[in-house]
Amino acid sequence: MYRIRFHGRGGQGIKTASRILGSALFAEGYEVQDAPRYGAERRGAPIFAYVRADRAPVYERGIIDHPDLVVVTDESLVQVPAAAVMTGLCDRSVLVIASAAEPELWQQRLGVTCRVLTLPPGPGEGAALMGAASVGAAAKLIGQISAANLEGAIRAELEGLPSDVIERNVGRALESFDSFESHAGCVSEGEALTRASATPPAWVELEVEPTSISAPAIRGEATSEQVQTGLWRTMRPVIDDSLCNHCSWICSTLCPDAAIDVGSDREPIIDYEHCKGCLLCVAVCPSHAIVVEPERAVDEHRSDP
């Protein structure tokens, strides 16, 4: 059985990518199961989707713990623990990351021994086509999908969208498909379920506990601040101090996420742990003092607070 996991952000087309790959495998005669996994989080938040394919009916369900192939369409997710990109990777797994950096650099940073491949974005290409590029790559790496079936699956899945959008996606997917020719078929099918490989469950006896802790109530204040929604961001707003005219904190008032405070010196400060990157502040700043910079995972800039 092939077990493939896609990781991306809400709104980046991960669900569509997994469905295209599922449809293409189905067209090749496989029994297929594909599904997205949502949380409560919204656009920009880490999500994943998975595809299983086998010649026999697929009876496994839910999360894939031991993937043969992991495709990450947003490199900034790799180091986000909550995204669980690295879960279950082993030596025979293949990891594909949408990134302009070299695969060796990733291998080194992540300390993994499995095969790592990168999928560089095209010049000026945003996140919009990364889904198509990643599904093209996955199809080639699995080595069981023809270009014709890949294209058919994309056209079926995107039916109803404007034709130029469909053509751009087909073009990008096929380009990516071809570019991985030297790695064709490098993904191998994982083992079937065996009893010997399972760890027995460590079941516990629950005791009756006081309602002060055993009811779904939260007694802390603003505990949401422990959630780093800054990880949703793909672009970051940066205040150019030389241009900021210390207005009446329009950026702070209009920030939906209370992520800009104004200090006593009237300097607005962006809280990057929580800024979701909506860039509303960029749009409303009267003196155009807030600029936009891309978030990149591998360069030094990311490690700044």
Partner: peptide, 28 residues
């Protein structure tokens, strides 16, 4: 005046509302 509006905010950040949510902007 807009300068009379609070410059620090009470509602905790880190909520799962979508980026750019106009509802959360008002609620905050």
């Amino acid at each position: 005046d807009i300068k009379d509006l609070p410059s620090t905010h009470l509602l905790g950040s880190g909520t799962p509302m979508c980026a750019g949510c106009g509802g959360l902007q008002a609620v905050s």
